[in-house]
Amino acid sequence: MNTRQRFAIAAGFVLVAALVGILAAPSLPDRLVTHWNAAGVPNDTMSKPVALAFAPVLAALLLALFAAIPRIDPRRENIQSFRPYYDWLVVIITGFIALVHVGVIAFNLGYEFDFTLLILAAVAFLFYYIGILLTHAERNWFVGVRTPWTLSSDVVWTRTHVLAGRLFKLTAVISLVGLLFGEYAIYFLLVPALVTSAITVVYSYYLYEQVERGTDPSTDSL
């Protein structure tokens, strides 16, 4: 499967999201529930036209942006080196948006389910795939852990992304376990995600300082 085919799948998700909204529109109320609290209780609404257009338009815009990035990145050749993983990220993100959109429509059609748990499970899957992607990403300006230190050194980029990939996968697993804890499930996602972000930033700085000072023995073999 090539890039064009993978992007066709992503475009298919955008189209499905739009078509589901069009077909369901006559049966939906004038205002749709579009937000839930941590306990899965609806707490905000949006007008039907805006709610039905928002996700397909967002997905289409992101798809266009992702298509442009490999052309405009100054290190575009590095993106090409992990292009299949990049393309599947695009597919998963558009699929995620389509899932959320269909979930909103289903809920407003009267189907009863815990929307918050659905989103958390989907985000856990997204995070796990990001963990896979990060271990393959080469240095570029748009995808990955982009700190001043990772962008300044291939060594720092590679080792930071190895760590980040493992932490994102761990966050995904913890998030899935959190689904068993009801209204507290969201904290099993947010806390590990925040800790992961903090650790990767601090580690990239620490590693860069070691490499610059020549005090990191592991760089001798890189």
Rank of each mutant, 00 (worst) to 15 (best):
L190F: 13
P74N: 11
P148M: 12
L176A: 07
L189D: 00
I130F: 09
G165R: 01
V50S: 08
T3I: 04
S47D: 15
V173P: 02
A68R: 11
R76P: 04
W88D: 08
Y111S: 13
L163W: 09
T200M: 11
A124I: 05
V33N: 12
V202P: 07
V14E: 07
R76E: 11
I119C: 14
F142N: 02
D154V: 10
V33Y: 12
L180R: 07
A67V: 11
H35K: 12
Y206T: 13
L133Y: 04
R6C: 00
N78I: 05
I72A: 04
L176F: 14
A59S: 14
W88F: 15
Y208C: 04
V16C: 11
P84A: 12
G131T: 06
S175W: 01
A17Q: 09
L120R: 07
D220M: 06
Y129L: 01
V100F: 03
R166K: 13
R6Y: 08
A17Y: 03
Y184F: 13
D73W: 09
G178Q: 00
H35Y: 07
T215Q: 00
Y86I: 07
L189S: 02
N108P: 09
T171G: 01
L179K: 03
T94C: 15
Y86P: 04
T219E: 07
V102C: 14
F7T: 02
P148A: 13
E212V: 12
R83D: 11
L63Q: 06
A53Q: 02
L133N: 12
A24F: 07
V162L: 14
F113W: 14
A38G: 09
T196I: 00
A8M: 14
Q80W: 12
I97G: 01
P84H: 11
V104N: 11
D87S: 04
L176W: 08
A106F: 07
L109N: 06
V90C: 08
L207A: 08
S175I: 07
V145L: 09
I130T: 07
I97A: 05
V145P: 02
P74Y: 10
P74W: 10
T158M: 09
H101L: 05
E112G: 03
A193F: 13
S153I: 05
A137N: 04
L65D: 06
V156R: 01
Q5R: 13
A59G: 02
T135V: 11
I9C: 04
V100Q: 08
P84E: 13
Y206A: 14
A106S: 15
I9T: 06
D44T: 10
I79G: 01
Q5S: 14
L176I: 12
V20F: 09
I72N: 01
I9W: 11
Y85N: 10
L222G: 08
A39V: 06
I9K: 03
H101P: 06
L15C: 10
R75M: 11
P217K: 00
L61F: 13
W36L: 09
A25E: 15
Y208S: 13
A11P: 03
R75E: 10
H136G: 10
A98N: 05
T215R: 04
L190W: 03
I132K: 08
N43S: 06
T200Q: 12
F82T: 13
T215M: 00
E77N: 13
L189R: 02
L179Q: 05
F168K: 00
A67T: 14
T135L: 06
R76G: 15
P49E: 00
F54S: 12
I174S: 00
W141N: 10
Y86M: 10
P56K: 05
T135H: 02
L109I: 09
